[in-house]
Amino acid sequence: MTAKARIEATLTRNLEPERLIVIDESHQHAGHQPDFTGAEGTHMRVRIVSSKFAGLSRIDRHRMVNALLKPELDAGLHALAVEAAAPGEPTRW
Rank of each mutant, 00 (worst) to 15 (best):
G41L: 02
R45H: 13
N14V: 10
P34A: 12
N14W: 10
G41R: 06
Q28E: 15
E16A: 10
A84W: 00
S26W: 01
E72S: 12
I23Q: 05
A39D: 11
W93C: 14
A9G: 08
K4Q: 15
N14M: 12
L11E: 03
T91A: 15
G41F: 02
A3D: 06
L15M: 00
M44C: 14
M64C: 04
V22S: 03
P90L: 03
A67M: 13
N66H: 10
A9E: 00
H29M: 10
R13Y: 11
V49S: 11
T10C: 10
A79V: 03
W93K: 13
P90A: 13
N66K: 08
K70D: 04
R45D: 13
A85M: 03
L80C: 06
A54L: 08
G38S: 10
H43I: 01
R92K: 08
L69I: 00
E40Y: 09
S51K: 13
H29F: 05
P17W: 02
G88E: 12
E25D: 15
D60L: 09
D35Y: 11
R63E: 06
R13L: 03
A39P: 06
S51V: 01
H32R: 04
T12M: 05
G76D: 00
K52N: 07
S50D: 05
V82A: 01
Q28L: 15
P87C: 06
A9T: 08
H43V: 02
P71D: 07
D24K: 10
I7G: 00
A54N: 14
K4R: 15
R58A: 15
A9M: 06
E8M: 13
L80Y: 08
G76P: 00
W93V: 13
E83F: 10
G38R: 01
L56M: 14
I59R: 08
H43G: 06
N66A: 09
E83P: 01
T37A: 10
H27E: 14
V22E: 05
L77W: 01
D24L: 15
I48S: 06
A5F: 09
D24N: 12
R13S: 09
V46W: 03
L56C: 11
P17Y: 12
I59S: 11
G76W: 00
Q33L: 12
W93L: 13
V46L: 04
V82I: 14
A79G: 12
V65P: 01
T42I: 02
A30P: 11
E25P: 08
H43C: 04
V65A: 03
